[in-house]
Computed example of a mutant assay.
Amino acid sequence: MQDAADLETNMLGPVLADRSCGDCTACCTVLQVASPDFAKPAGVPCKHLTAAGCGIHAIRPHICRSWFCVWRREADLPEAARPDRSGLLISISFVPEPQNCFEGVSINVRLLAGSDAIANGMAARVLDVLCEYLIPVWFSDGDEKMLMHPSPDVARLVLSGTPAPTALHDEVAAWREQYGMFAPRR
């Protein structure tokens, strides 16, 4: 089976050579890490995070060496979308037991605490870029997680199994084909 880094590369392409984390350490606090060689809860700064960045960067765990936010992979996202600049952390999410087919593998856009990305339009710019793919896109503001892509009409048809009207047939069929494997087993 492919590891997550390979799947992310297949979905979005390789890490862009001209994009680096720089001073951004959002993932070191926001994300939950549960790997064989390292674990930390979501929303808690990594124990190795210092004012100067990762205190063990040269020997950091494999998960930290192989994970990259979507901003590092998607050239159409503006430079200003880097998490520490935009207040948005964009990641590929893998849910082993999804509640619906749109949760198995998806893009998750998280609004970071104190972010003004909604008010200044950055969230809309990021979502416009990400919603061009045949990949479910979720947006989380810390309180609520909302499916942004596919559209509600398409999502409802995909989830219900109801035949799609002619205008939506091809789009619904594409989502069902791509993500039907993630439908919960009954």
Rank of each mutant, 00 (worst) to 15 (best):
P136Y: 00
A124I: 06
A39D: 03
V15K: 09
L134E: 14
L130A: 05
R125I: 08
R185V: 15
S106Y: 09
R125G: 09
I90C: 00
S20W: 04
D170P: 03
T25G: 01
A113F: 05
L127V: 12
D76H: 13
P78Y: 06
L168M: 15
L130R: 08
W67A: 02
P98C: 02
R72K: 11
L16E: 05
Y133I: 07
I63E: 12
A164M: 06
T25Q: 01
R19Y: 00
R185N: 11
S106W: 11
P45G: 03
I90H: 00
R156D: 12
R60Y: 00
I135T: 06
A42Y: 01
C46M: 05
D23R: 14
S106G: 12
G114V: 10
H48W: 15
V109W: 12
Q178H: 03
P14C: 12
H62W: 12
L31Q: 06
I63D: 04
Q2M: 14
A183I: 08
P83M: 02
P98F: 05
T9D: 15
W71P: 01
G22Q: 03
M1S: 13
A5K: 12
S160I: 01
L157E: 08
G121Q: 09
Q178V: 10
A58N: 07
W71C: 05
I118W: 14
W67H: 15
M122R: 08
A167E: 12
V129Y: 04
A75G: 05
E8A: 13
A117C: 12
G142L: 03
W67F: 15
H169A: 15
V129F: 04
P78T: 07
I92M: 13
F102D: 02
A42E: 05
V172M: 12
A123V: 06
A39G: 12
I56C: 05
F94R: 13
A81W: 07
C131R: 15
T25W: 00
S106V: 14
P41I: 10
V105Y: 03
R110L: 09
G13V: 01
G161P: 02
V158A: 04
D37K: 11
P163M: 11
L130S: 04
E97Q: 14
F182D: 09
G87I: 05
R85L: 12
F182Y: 15
K145I: 14
E97F: 13
V15Y: 01
A4Y: 04
H149P: 05
G114F: 10
V137I: 10
V137P: 06
P150H: 05
C27Q: 02
N100P: 03
Y179C: 09
A51D: 15
A167F: 08
S66I: 15
N10Q: 14
L127G: 11
